[in-house]
Design a protein around this nucleic acid. Structure first.
Length: 287
DNA sequence: CCCTGTCAAGTCACG
DNA sequence: CGTGACTTGACAGGG
């Protein structure tokens, strides 16, 4: 079981530095990518020292990567550094994931949105390919919108999934969410696509079909084939007294210990906790 | 220099 | 119908 925190380390330079589209220039782009890759290297070294061997790489690493304004051949220009980061990842036994944001909707009704989403997934796949990682390095997305008809929305997801380029398909995983698509809905999609499904404890608390956490995780575990690696799990805790679904500022050791006790499978756990690395270090000590 | 509105992108819930 | 939330963070202009 590996533990990680998402994207950023607050004690190190940001690995997800970006800038405004309005101030785009090739120079600014190159400078930012260079900064982010250097920061990623530093962050991975930090994580090795603290035995935090699951990492979600920020989607800001390559800003505007799939935007038409962006024409620099970053894979070529940064090939050497990307490959060396990949070697560090492989040598230390890291598990890697990426999580494109809410604008990626492969089940959208508007074909233009679907195409843009595939463009975004495409650069994520290119990035992981440039690192030289195998298919256990995953790109995780949510199922998408419901548009008033969940069955049709699922059918569109399945249809679009079949059309995806294999460089995306082999890395794609879905995560159930807190309002629209439950573990059960994702299992329906898995049966039709073979796609692995990521468990999220807080989403499951918010939206479920009566199954316990253990039951849900056991169901999802079978969606992970050998080439996908062991299952990925997102862990977070409701921020006390805040809006439902909002993530806690820091790890509650007791809550996490209880959660771990009810994890019946071998999996890699991503902490979605705001303060990032201090919580991950504590969590690792509790495992 | 700090403050804060706003940032490429979409959908849904809430007032 | 406008706004905030989403794994949020942080850019960048105005005070």
């Amino acid at each position: 079981m590996r533990i990680g925190y998402a994207c950023l380390n607050r004690s190190l330079p940001s690995a997800g530095k970006t800038f405004r589209l309005a101030s785009y220039s090739e120079a600014k782009f190159r400078e930012t990518v260079q900064h982010n890759l250097d920061a990623l290297q530093q962050l991975l070294e930090f994580n090795v020292e603290h035995n935090l061997l699951f990492h979600r790489i920020s989607s800001n690493t390559i800003p505007f990567a799939s935007h038409p304004i962006q024409t620099v051949d970053w894979q070529e220009e940064f090939a050497e550094q990307l490959s060396s980061i990949g070697t560090c990842i492989k040598n230390n036994g890291f598990r890697i994931s990426m999580h494109p944001d809410q604008f990626v909707l492969i089940n959208a009704k508007d074909p233009k949105i679907v195409e843009k989403s595939i463009g975004d997934l495409s650069w994520h796949a290119d990035f992981l390919d440039a690192l030289g990682l195998d298919t256990t390095a995953k790109i995780q997305i949510h199922v998408g919108g419901v548009y008033g008809d969940k069955e049709a929305a699922i059918a569109r997801f399945v249809h679009e999934h079949k059309r995806l380029p294999s460089k995306i398909q082999r890395r794609l995983a879905i995560e159930h969410d807190d309002r629209l698509f439950s573990v059960r809905d994702c299992m329906v999609i898995h049966k039709q696509t073979g796609i692995p499904v990521i468990f999220d404890n807080l989403h499951h608390e918010c939206l479920h079909n009566g199954e316990t956490q253990e039951e849900a995780m056991q169901q999802l575990a079978i969606t992970w084939k050998k080439e996908d690696g062991i299952p990925l799990v997102d862990y977070s805790m409701q921020a006390p007294g805040e809006r439902v679904g909002k993530h806690a500022q820091t790890l509650d050791d007791k809550h996490f210990t209880t959660f771990i006790k009810h994890v019946p499978i071998d999996c890699d756990i991503m902490l979605e906790i705001k303060d990032k690395e201090p919580s991950a270090i504590r969590a690792k000590a509790l495992c």
